[in-house]
């Protein structure tokens, strides 16, 4: 496990985008050889998306041969509802880049048969050759995607009922009307993300500090689902200073000492 500590949210965003760019370019994607990328929504990855769009607009990166799989989507929320993850991805990423629509996958929370939709998603990921790099964020309670506390750490893509806390936190996006907040979501499982070749988890802000502590300094625990990635062979936890508040000084010092090495991971890729 790597822990990469940057000073600020903006630096985390740039670091993440550079890492993604390098991974894509080094893969040499082309027709019949697509780079598969797992993607999150939420406020944490916004800066990374902005930076990736910048790279695309500057001609430094193309998504023509990138295939994406998003982590989750609400159930029974209109696809074009401003709070849907389809809308999020469209507004914040897809409409700005050159990705082929047929290569951008998001779970359909309005599918007639939700179970089938989830099974099919797993199948599509498998057929795509698995996910090269899965990027995630976490909630203050340490959940990854919609794998709320208590989720199985070997779970696959499925329908998940949201925790009351999540529903209440989401009310602000739905006119503070609890009855309008979706109560279920489709989400990839912890196991689905574990299957990726590499995982990069973005954690920023003081409000995520305790979750980061639980994620990396204590044991694997299904009440903090992100802690499962301690057992993933290639996982990067990418955080800012604020998120390290609850970590031990020696943990922070150790990983900060490795920053020179870690920064080699985001050097300009060899063409």
């Amino acid at each position: 496990m790597r822990l990469v500590i940057n000073d600020t949210y903006d630096e985390v965003s740039v670091w993440a985008a550079k890492y993604v760019r390098r991974k894509i370019i080094e893969f040499h994607p082309g027709p019949g050889k697509l780079f598969t990328l797992g993607l999150p929504t939420g406020s944490t990855p916004l800066g990374m998306y902005r930076k990736l769009i910048e790279f695309y607009k500057a001609g430094k990166l193309s998504f023509k041969y990138v295939k994406t799989f998003n982590m989750d989507e609400y159930v029974e929320l209109a696809r074009d509802h401003p709070e849907s993850y389809h809308s999020f991805m469209w507004d914040n990423f897809f409409k700005h880049i050159d990705i082929e629509p047929s290569n951008a996958h998001i779970l359909d929370g309005n599918a007639a048969d939700l179970e089938k939709e989830c099974d099919n998603y797993e199948k599509m990921i498998k057929e795509a050759g698995g996910i090269r790099l899965f990027i995630g964020g976490i909630g203050p309670d340490g959940h990854i995607a919609f794998n709320e506390p208590g989720s199985s750490l070997v779970s696959r893509t499925r329908v998940k009922t949201l925790a009351q806390e999540t529903i209440q936190a989401n009310a602000r996006f739905f006119g503070n009307d609890l009855s309008k907040v979706p109560t279920q979501a489709l989400t990839v499982g912890v196991g689905t993300v574990m299957d990726a070749d590499e995982v990069m988890i973005l954690i920023t802000g003081a409000h995520k500090a305790f979750a980061l502590h639980k994620a990396i300094e204590e044991g694997v625990n299904h009440m903090w689902t992100v802690s499962a990635f301690q057992q993933h062979p290639r996982t990067i936890f990418l955080c800012d200073e604020d998120a390290t508040m609850e970590l031990r000084v020696r943990t922070v010092k150790y990983f900060k000492g490795l920053m020179q090495l870690h920064n080699k991971l985001v050097e300009e890729p060899a063409e």
Binding site: D80, H86, W90, K95, P101, S102, A104
Partner: peptide, 11 residues
């Protein structure tokens, strides 16, 4: 364009 992208999947 959102419908073109997600439903029709065309560019």
């Amino acid at each position: 364009p959102e419908v073109l992208f997600f439903v029709e999947k065309v560019t």
